[in-house]
């Protein structure tokens, strides 16, 4: 049983109900899927399909009522940033810290020495294409740059898995396209396992090896679509027949 589990995620029969304002909401219903190492998997689904609950669980900030989530062969019970780096929709950078200090943040929580922190943060910033921007404060950066810093923060501990919660949703169309290509470049370079939640069907297909489609509440996985488009992906692919067919297939599932 010496199976290599590095960079893998298994979600097994996860169901969850949460109560807010005295009302019970059945958020997730028996969700199961597996993400193998080095794979880029997108999750799409209508608003309120329990995607965020699922992510909170993967980040170790919530425990499912039923089922379990296993990351690299180990059940997730609390945040484990050295295994899973997270990137949220809003870049959520600390405005009182420079870009570099923001990237260093996960390391400083663990008490890593300043010199080591500094080197790692610079490497991570270079990886996301922000060399020389380390001393800028978040308000001095554009939306796309902020999200790059946030990705660098997720990568700074070199976790095998990167989890992204609609990271480009707040960006304009053009920046969003550029950031998608940038993310693919970073992924090719680092070979992380990426779990990418998005609203955009095009983005989901364009980036991923596999797209998981979730239903409206209670969230269930209603389809798993392998994207067999060649890599590297190119912008022009979005207007090809196979791409549009995949996109349509997803659309038909979540439309009703």
């Amino acid at each position: 049983m010496n199976k290599d589990v590095s960079g893998t995620i298994q979600v097994e029969g996860v169901s969850h109900t949460f109560v807010s304002n005295g009302e019970k909401t059945h958020a997730l219903d028996n969700v199961s899927f597996e993400v193998p190492k080095n794979r880029f998997v997108s999750i799409v689904g209508p608003s309120g399909c329990g995607k965020s609950s699922l992510l909170m669980m993967l980040a170790g900030l919530q425990t499912p009522d039923e089922g379990r989530i296993i990351c690299e062969g180990k059940k997730i019970t609390r945040p484990d940033p050295q295994r899973i780096g997270v990137v949220f929709q809003e870049a959520s950078l600390f405005p009182w810290l420079t870009a570099e200090k923001n990237v260093e943040f996960p390391l400083s929580l663990r008490g890593v020495k300043p010199a080591v922190r500094h080197d790692r943060a610079r490497e991570a910033l270079a990886l996301v294409g922000l060399e020389g921007f380390g001393s800028r404060y978040p308000h001095e950066l554009s939306g796309g740059m902020k999200q790059r810093v946030s990705i660098a923060r997720g990568l700074v501990q070199d976790p095998p898995i990167l989890m992204m919660d609609e990271p480009f949703a707040a960006l304009d169309e053009q920046t969003r396209t550029v950031m998608g290509d940038e993310l693919l470049r970073i992924w090719e370079q680092t070979r992380k396992t990426i779990l990418f939640v998005t609203h955009s069907l095009g983005e989901a297909v364009y980036l991923a090896d596999q797209v998981l489609v979730m239903s409206a509440r209670p969230g269930r996985i209603i389809d798993r679509i392998d994207v067999d488009l060649p890599r590297p992906r190119r912008f022009e692919m979005m207007s090809t027949q196979p791409f549009m067919e995949l996109r349509e297939r997803i659309w038909r599932q979540i439309r009703h």
Partner: peptide, 18 residues
Amino acid sequence: VRSDHIRVARSYGANLRQ
């Protein structure tokens, strides 16, 4: 104090004191 900042800190393993 923004809740997304707290969420980021928690997801990177910050304890209450941090």
